[in-house]
């Protein structure tokens, strides 16, 4: 009787621990973007990106507050928020997708894995399908997720006045670097 009770308790505990560790998250992820135009290079970084990865289903989600991007030049930051991404009207960008090769990632074993990600990216109120690759470095039960990909700002209905066309590139390089830890629920 006692033996059975111990076995059942152990099973319940194991199940609850593994359930709790299905999801990984961060609220301090980093996303930066780089515009390399003939005259000028513009870079901005957001250090408070929220992300969740469900290791069981492969679902992945990011949320980025547009006003959280920090620029070096004051005027660029102002133009970015007021004229280009209109962050008062569209405060948040979001990515919702899945890791299509999730079964190839062993979340319980340290190592570096390639992740193929597919989903929908919403910027400036426009949603587009996006497919990219990234790296999941699993270390001590945490994930360091990195990815670099390009987006075209014209795809997201962001208009760049012709007067600054030489300063702002239509192709923006996005770099993602998120350290995700187990979500204890």
């Amino acid at each position: 009787m006692l033996k059975n009770l111990i076995v059942v308790t152990a099973l319940v505990l194991t199940a609850s621990v593994s359930f709790a560790q299905d999801k990984f998250y961060t609220k301090t992820g980093k996303i930066s973007f780089l515009s390399q135009a003939p005259i000028e290079e513009i870079e901005a970084k957001n250090k408070t990106v929220t992300a969740v990865v469900d290791s069981k289903t492969g679902a992945i989600q990011f949320a980025v507050q547009m006003k959280g991007f920090e620029f070096e030049k004051q005027l660029m930051q102002q133009h970015f928020n007021e004229n280009y991404v209109e962050s008062d009207k569209y405060p948040k960008s979001e990515f919702k997708g899945t890791i299509t090769n999730n079964s190839a990632i062993n979340y319980k074993k340290d190592g570096t894995y390639n992740a193929k990600v597919k989903g929908q990216l919403t910027i400036h109120g426009v949603t587009k399908d996006v497919e990219t690759t990234g790296t999941f470095k699993i270390n001590g039960g945490k994930i360091d997720a990195t990815s670099t990909f390009n987006v075209l700002i014209s795809d997201y209905n962001i208009k760049i006045p012709s007067i600054v066309k030489e300063k702002v590139s239509n192709t923006i390089k996005i770099t993602v670097d998120c350290n995700l830890e187990p979500l204890k629920s």
Partner: peptide, 21 residues
């Protein structure tokens, strides 16, 4: 910014988040 995930959304388990830059 301020964020709070919606019902079925993965971010819902993260509660309310207020951000400063």
């Amino acid at each position: 910014g301020y964020d709070k995930g919606n019902g079925d959304d993965l971010l819902a388990s993260l509660g309310t988040t207020i951000e400063l830059r």
